[in-house]
Amino acid sequence: MAIDKETVRKVAHLARIAEPEERLEPLAKELSGILGWIEQLNEVDVEGVEAMASTVDVKLPMREDAVTEGYTGGGQPENVVANAPKTEDHFFVVPKVVE
């Protein structure tokens, strides 16, 4: 299925990537090319086949609901915000989102 310029605009917005107007047409062409190649999958009969998300055939492990030590244990606000572009008192600072 060919993707048009408007679809690219919509998808780019969903993905939160600013694409300049002049890139939309070339991207539509590129993505259509890739999706056209992908569409050979329509030749495969998948009737009754179960969709596979993971190759690991084990039940996901459960752990005790308790505070753990170390990296995943919480209580490390300095480490959490250490690489943030803008912070204040262990908070991430973003442009105003509520009027």
Binding site: L41, N42, V44, V46, V49, E50, A51, M52, A53, T55
Partner: peptide
């Protein structure tokens, strides 16, 4: 569909 073909490849 891709996930189903993946299962068939598996």
């Amino acid at each position: 569909r891709a996930q189903k073909v993946r299962k068939k490849i598996f």
